Amino acid sequence: MRLIVTRTGGFAGLRSEWDIDIEEQPDSTEWEILIDTLPWDDAAALPPEPDRFIYQIRCAPREVTLAERQVTGPWRELVDRVRQAGEPSSRRRSDGADPTR
């Protein structure tokens, strides 16, 4: 089971993505419990806010897009665990520009 968290926006317009395989994690059962108990269907879409992050969380067949202020409680736990489990797979401006140039 693949879990992908994409964070876009922020002051510099960076995009970061973390992609992990839940079955490869030493605590995969805990991951599965957390994923199964998240309120996937209860997340209401909020309008984008300037200089704030937007998180897209995907674990097929479920997907949710959350504003930064919605990433609390179990969503925050999930995002923090994903960030700790691996390095971002990409880092670029959300408008496609290369931030290193």
Rank of each mutant, 00 (worst) to 15 (best):
M1P: 12
R2Y: 07
R2L: 07
V5Q: 01
V5C: 09
R7S: 01
G9Y: 00
G9S: 02
G13K: 02
R15Y: 10
R15W: 11
R15T: 14
R15C: 11
S16P: 02
S16N: 11
S16D: 15
E17P: 02
W18R: 08
W18I: 03
W18C: 09
I20R: 08
D21T: 15
I22W: 02
E23W: 10
E24S: 14
Q25M: 10
D27T: 06
D27Q: 10
S28Q: 09
S28W: 10
S28T: 04
T29H: 15
E30A: 13
E30W: 03
W31F: 06
E32K: 15
E32T: 12
E32Q: 13
I33N: 15
L34M: 11
I35Y: 11
D36M: 09
L38P: 09
L38G: 11
P39W: 07
W40V: 13
D42L: 10
D42Y: 14
A43V: 15
A43N: 10
A44S: 02
A45M: 14
E49C: 06
E49H: 12
E49M: 06
P50R: 07
D51Q: 13
D51T: 08
R52E: 06
F53T: 00
Y55K: 14
Q56Y: 05
Q56T: 07
Q56P: 01
I57M: 03
R58P: 03
C59P: 07
A60C: 04
P61I: 12
R62I: 09
R62K: 13
R62V: 07
R62E: 10
V64G: 08
L66F: 08
E68H: 03
R69D: 11
V71R: 04
T72V: 02
G73A: 00
E77Q: 10
E77S: 06
E77Y: 12
V79K: 01
D80L: 09
R81F: 01
V82G: 14
V82I: 03
R83D: 01
A85D: 08
A85L: 06
G86A: 15
E87H: 09
E87P: 10
E87I: 05
P88V: 00
S90A: 12
S90V: 13
S90R: 15
R91H: 01
R92L: 02
R92A: 00
R93K: 08
S94F: 12
S94T: 08
D95C: 04
G96Q: 06
P99D: 04
T100V: 00
